[in-house]
Design a protein around this nucleic acid. Structure first.
Ligand SMILES: [Mn+2]
Ligand SMILES: [Mn+2]
Length: 544
DNA sequence: TCAACGTGTG
DNA sequence: TTCACACTTTCCA
DNA sequence: GAAAGTGTGTCTCACACGTTGAGC
C-alpha cells in the first residue's frame, strides 16, 4: 500500500482526455454518426484500459506506422496484450506490407546501409532512396525488407480517429494535445458556454464537403495541374455558412492558380459569382488584362453598386480610370482626396537596424516617449473593450473549448449578429467605463488567445498612458471605423505612436524609408484621419 | 564531433 | 496555418 | 503611380532525446 501524502499524478491523463473528446463528439452528433462511427465509440469503451491507452498514445503520434521498439510506455503493461486487443478487432495491423519509402522513414541510415550496401553511407537518405526506388518497387513486410526480427505495426483505425478529431474541432490543424496544453495553461482559451447543440457540422454533406475542400487544397499545395484541381473542386454548397466562404476562398485561389497556368477562362469562372470580394476585384482586373473592356466596366460598376467597401472602391476605381482612358471616354473624377500631414527627416543609415526604430529613437523624449506599435495598440484596445461581444455565445459560433475566436469571425454579418453587444461595449466610451473595462480585461484575460489582442506587445503602464493621451472621442472614431469592416480596417495602422505627457495628447507616425510607399490600407486610415482631424502623419526618411 | 533538425512528452 | 509589412522590379502615362 | 512578385519578422510551449550529415 502506498502511503505517500502527495497524490500520484494521473499516468493515464491522456486517455481521460481522449475518452472525453470521443464522448464529446458522440453526445453532440448522435444523428450524424454513421453506424461504423457509433460502433467505434462503443468498441473503444469496451476495450481493456491498456488497449484504449495505447490507441490514444499512438493516435497522438505522427503517422500510422510504428516500429515495435518505439512503442514503449511505462503505464501500459503488459504491452503485448494491449497490442493483441487492438489487433483482434482489426484496429491494428501487426504485419503490414510496406513500400520502400515507408521503410526509409522507419529506418536509420546505418540500418539501410547494412541492408543496401555501404555505398549508401556516402549518400544522403533522399539520394539513396532515389537511386533504389527503381529497382525496389512493391510492398513487403518490414522483416523482409531488412534482415531483422523487429515488427512494424500500422494503426489501421487511424482514419476513424481522424474523423472524430474533425467532428470535434471542425478543422485538421488542432490535435488531441490541445487538451493537455490547455490543461497545463500553455494555451489559454476563453471559456464560452457550450451546450449539446454546439457542433461544427450540421449535415453529413457538410462533412464530406470539408474533406473535398481539404483534398483540393492539398492538391494545389502539391502543385497539381489545373484540370486535376478543377476536377477536385466540389459542387457549390447549399448553405451560406462558413463552408460556403471556404468554398469561395478555394475558388479564389484556384483562379489565381489558373491565371498562373494560362487558364484565363477557368479563372474567370472561379471569380464569377464569388462572394469573396477579393475575387470579384480580381475578375475585373483579369478582364482588363484580357482587353475585354466592356465586360470589365460592366462588372466594375455592378461591384461598386453592390459594395460599400472602401477597399473595393479604391481598387476598382483605379481600374475604371485606366479603362476609361484607354477607351478615350471621359474619366470620372475622383472624389476629393484629402492630404495628410507629412514631414521629412534626414537620418544616418544603419544597415542593422530598422528605419522605424531609428525614427523612434530620434523622436523619443523623456516627456514624449515613442512606441513602435503598428496594429497592436488600437487593435488590442478594441479587442479588450469588445471582449464580451466577440466571445458572446452566439449559436453556431463556438463548438469546442479550444477556440481562440468565434467561427463566424470572417463572416460579413459578424458584427450585425452581435450589434447590441458591440453597442453595449462601445457605450462604455460614453460613460467613461471603458478605461476600467480595458484594464480589467487586460489583467483578467492576460494570455488568453483572442482576436485583435496582442498580449506581448503591451503592458499595463503603456495601456494606461494610451488611455490618458488618446481622447475618448478619437477612440470612438477609430473603433467605429474598425467595426465598419473588421477584415479591412484592422490593419494599416502607423508604425509609431508618440504620447505627450504634459499636454496629454498623442500622434501616430507612419515611417517611410527611401523606396517605401504608403500602402492601400495605410492610405485609407490616413485619409480617414485627415477627414476627422485625427493626428496621424507620415515621416519620410532620407539617408543623410 | 557537433550543430541542426525532427519527434515525443506533459 | 498564416499574416502584415517592406522591398524589388516592371510597366505605363 | 500602379501592379506583381519576393522577402522578413512575427507567430513560436519548453524541453529532452535521438538522428542526420557535414566538417574534422
Ligand atoms: Mn510598418
Ligand atoms: Mn512604415
Amino acid at each position: 500500500m502506498i502511503m505517500t501524502g502527495a497524490p500520484l499524478p494521473d499516468a493515464l491523463y491522456y486517455l481521460r482526455n481522449f475518452q472525453r473528446a470521443i464522448q464529446w463528439v458522440v453526445e453532440r452528433n448522435h444523428d450524424l454518426l454513421s453506424r461504423p462511427e457509433r460502433q467505434f465509440a462503443d468498441q473503444l469503451n469496451a476495450l481493456p484500459t491498456p488497449a484504449q491507452a495505447l490507441l490514444a498514445r499512438l493516435s497522438m503520434r505522427r503517422g500510422v506506422l510504428f516500429r515495435r521498439s518505439k512503442i514503449r510506455y511505462a503505464e501500459i503493461e503488459p504491452l503485448e496484450s494491449a497490442l493483441d486487443a487492438l489487433a483482434e478487432i482489426g484496429w491494428l495491423d501487426t504485419r503490414p506490407a510496406l513500400t520502400l519509402q515507408e521503410v526509409f522513414r522507419l529506418s536509420t541510415r546505418a540500418e539501410l546501409a547494412q541492408r543496401f550496401g555501404d555505398r549508401l553511407s556516402r549518400l544522403t537518405k533522399q539520394a539513396a532512396y532515389d537511386a533504389l526506388i527503381e529497382s525496389h518497387a512493391g510492398e513487403r513486410l518490414f522483416q523482409d525488407w531488412l534482415s531483422t526480427d523487429e515488427p512494424v505495426h500500422r494503426v489501421s483505425i487511424a482514419p476513424m480517429v481522424l474523423q472524430f478529431r474533425l467532428l470535434h474541432f471542425g478543422n485538421f490543424y488542432q490535435e488531441w494535445h490541445e487538451y493537455t496544453l490547455a490543461h497545463l495553461q500553455i494555451f489559454k482559451y476563453e471559456s464560452v458556454p457550450l451546450d449539446v447543440a454546439s457542433r461544427p457540422f450540421e449535415t453529413r454533406e457538410e462533412i464530406e464537403l470539408f474533406y473535398a475542400l481539404y483534398r483540393c487544397y492539398e492538391a494545389m499545395s502539391e502543385a497539381a495541374e489545373l484540370p486535376e484541381l478543377i476536377a477536385l473542386l466540389p459542387k457549390a454548397p447549399a448553405g451560406q455558412g462558413w463552408l460556403r466562404r471556404r468554398w469561395d476562398r478555394l475558388r479564389y485561389h484556384l483562379g489565381q492558380e489558373a491565371e498562373r497556368q494560362e487558364g484565363a477562362e477557368t479563372a474567370l469562372e472561379m471569380y464569377r459569382d464569388n462572394t469573396q470580394l477579393d475575387a470579384r476585384v480580381r475578375q475585373v482586373r483579369l478582364l482588363e488584362c484580357l482587353g475585354r473592356d466592356e465586360e470589365a466596366l460592366q462588372t466594375a460598376h455592378t461591384l461598386l453598386q453592390e459594395s460599400f467597401s472602401e477597399l473595393i472602391v479604391q481598387r476598382v476605381s483605379r481600374i475604371v480610370t485606366r479603362l476609361q482612358r484607354r477607351q478615350g471616354s471621359k474619366v470620372t473624377k475622383r472624389v476629393n482626396q484629402l492630404a495628410w500631414a507629412s514631414s521629412e527627416l534626414g537620418l544616418g543609415y544603419e544597415s542593422d537596424r530598422r528605419v522605424e526604430v531609428l525614427v523612434q529613437e530620434h523622436l523619443s523624449r523623456d516627456d514624449a516617449p515613442v512606441y513602435y506599435v503598428e496594429n497592436s495598440l488600437l487593435c488590442s484596445l478594441f479587442g479588450l473593450l469588445c471582449w464580451d461581444a466577440i466571445f458572446q455565445p452566439v449559436r453556431g459560433a463556438f463548438f469546442h473549448p479550444f477556440q481562440s475566436a468565434p467561427a463566424d469571425m470572417d463572416c460579413p454579418q459578424f458584427v450585425a449578429r452581435r450589434r447590441e453587444a458591440f453597442d453595449a461595449c462601445l457605450n462604455r466610451l460614453e460613460t467613461g467605463e471603458h478605461v476600467a473595462t480595458i484594464l480589467r480585461t487586460f489583467a483578467q484575460k492576460y494570455g488568453t488567445s483572442a482576436p485583435f489582442v496582442h498580449w506581448l506587445a503591451l503592458d499595463e503602464p503603456t495601456l494606461q498612458l494610451a488611455l490618458q493621451c488618446i481622447p475618448v472621442e478619437h477612440l470612438k472614431l477609430y473603433f467605429a471605423r474598425m467595426l465598419d469592416d473588421l477584415s479591412e480596417n484592422t490593419s494599416g495602422f502607423p508604425d509609431l505612436v508618440q504620447f505627450f505627457l504634459e499636454t496629454r495628447t498623442y500622434r501616430f507616425i507612419e515611417v517611410k524609408g527611401p523606396g517605401d510607399r504608403v500602402q492601400d490600407n495605410q492610405r485609407r486610415w490616413l485619409q480617414f484621419c485627415a477627414r476627422h482631424q485625427l493626428p496621424m502623419e507620415v515621416c519620410q526618411v532620407r539617408w543623410a
